[in-house]
Amino acid sequence: MNADIAHSTAPRPEPTQPTTLIRPFTIRPFTIRPLTIRLSATRRGARLARHLAAEQLDRWGRPYGTDANRTATLLVAELAANAVLHGRARGRDFRLRLTLYPQDPVLRIEVTDPRPERRPPLPGTLPLPSPDLDPGRGFLLVEALSTHWGTTGGDPYTKTVWCEVALK
């Protein structure tokens, strides 16, 4: 009976449901999906941001131990630590976003926290820290190691401190 049906020359009925065209999977050149993650505004969250950044850079072809990975990881650590120390609000997390632009190649690091009223100094206007104090050097490192950095406020409830670093 199955053989008769399989080789039948009778016209087949049209399907009652529309067929879905399945497109083949294609990779767009020069597009890399950014990493975005919310982390607790604690020392553990800042440490996790650093580890996740190093791992993501390794996946993007910037292996552990390279200058590019170490520099970007240091910048993530500084921005995450500032979000935890100065941008913390009770019960609110901070967000880390890493975007790789492979054409240049440039990595954009963004850290968003819930304290828009507490903004860092403008780029190029950082005061020199006191030689007697340990704190106060984080943004000097960000300014020295990144090609650009700044602060943006997309809404009245958050601020984003960002920097871009060239990955050679």
Rank of each mutant, 00 (worst) to 15 (best):
residue 6 A to N: 04
residue 80 A to T: 00
residue 150 G to F: 07
residue 109 I to L: 04
residue 15 P to F: 01
residue 158 T to M: 03
residue 61 G to Q: 12
residue 128 L to D: 15
residue 107 L to A: 10
residue 123 P to W: 05
residue 97 R to V: 07
residue 49 A to M: 02
residue 130 S to Y: 05
residue 87 G to K: 04
residue 16 T to K: 08
residue 130 S to Q: 14
residue 109 I to M: 07
residue 66 T to V: 07
residue 101 Y to A: 11
residue 97 R to E: 15
residue 105 P to G: 12
residue 21 L to C: 00
residue 140 L to S: 13
residue 35 L to G: 02
residue 128 L to P: 02
residue 153 G to W: 00
residue 140 L to Q: 14
residue 91 G to K: 06
residue 60 W to S: 05
residue 120 P to N: 03
residue 150 G to I: 06
residue 111 V to C: 08
residue 114 P to T: 04
residue 71 T to G: 03
residue 112 T to F: 05
residue 162 W to P: 03
residue 78 E to K: 09
residue 20 T to D: 09
residue 104 D to M: 02
residue 90 R to D: 14
residue 24 P to N: 10
residue 139 F to S: 06
residue 123 P to C: 07
residue 4 D to H: 10
residue 3 A to W: 08
residue 40 S to L: 08
residue 109 I to R: 05
residue 79 L to Q: 01
residue 49 A to H: 04
residue 88 R to A: 12
residue 138 G to E: 02
residue 114 P to D: 02
residue 35 L to A: 01
residue 142 V to Q: 05
residue 67 D to R: 15
residue 144 A to L: 13
residue 49 A to Y: 02
residue 100 L to R: 01
residue 164 E to G: 03
residue 65 G to N: 06
residue 160 T to N: 06
residue 143 E to C: 03
residue 73 T to R: 11
residue 36 T to N: 10
residue 71 T to S: 13
residue 120 P to M: 00
residue 43 R to P: 04
residue 96 L to D: 03
residue 6 A to H: 08
residue 160 T to Q: 07
residue 38 R to C: 03
residue 36 T to W: 00
residue 150 G to E: 09
residue 12 R to E: 11
residue 74 L to M: 13
residue 120 P to D: 05
residue 11 P to H: 05
residue 34 P to K: 10
residue 15 P to G: 04
residue 142 V to E: 03
residue 107 L to Y: 09
residue 132 D to W: 10
residue 141 L to C: 10
residue 115 R to K: 04
residue 67 D to A: 14
residue 132 D to T: 13
residue 94 F to M: 02
residue 38 R to A: 13
residue 71 T to K: 11
residue 91 G to W: 01
residue 166 A to E: 14
residue 5 I to L: 15
residue 4 D to Y: 10
residue 159 K to A: 15
residue 26 T to E: 13
residue 139 F to R: 05
residue 33 R to D: 07
residue 145 L to Q: 07
residue 161 V to P: 00
residue 148 H to Y: 12
residue 85 L to V: 08
residue 144 A to G: 13
residue 73 T to E: 09
residue 102 P to S: 06
residue 51 H to R: 13
residue 27 I to D: 11
residue 100 L to Y: 09
residue 4 D to P: 00
residue 17 Q to R: 10
residue 153 G to S: 14
residue 67 D to G: 09
residue 54 A to N: 04
residue 63 P to S: 10
residue 81 A to I: 04
residue 81 A to S: 13
residue 168 K to C: 00
residue 96 L to Y: 01
residue 58 D to E: 08
residue 79 L to K: 06
residue 77 A to D: 15
residue 89 A to M: 11
residue 128 L to I: 12
residue 115 R to L: 01
residue 15 P to L: 04
residue 40 S to K: 11
residue 69 N to F: 03
residue 92 R to D: 01
residue 125 T to W: 00
residue 22 I to Q: 14
residue 132 D to L: 11
residue 61 G to Y: 11
residue 133 L to D: 15
residue 108 R to L: 10
residue 108 R to V: 14
residue 24 P to W: 07
residue 59 R to P: 00
residue 55 E to D: 10
residue 15 P to R: 07
residue 60 W to I: 05
residue 30 F to D: 15
residue 28 R to T: 14
residue 121 P to T: 05
residue 72 A to I: 01
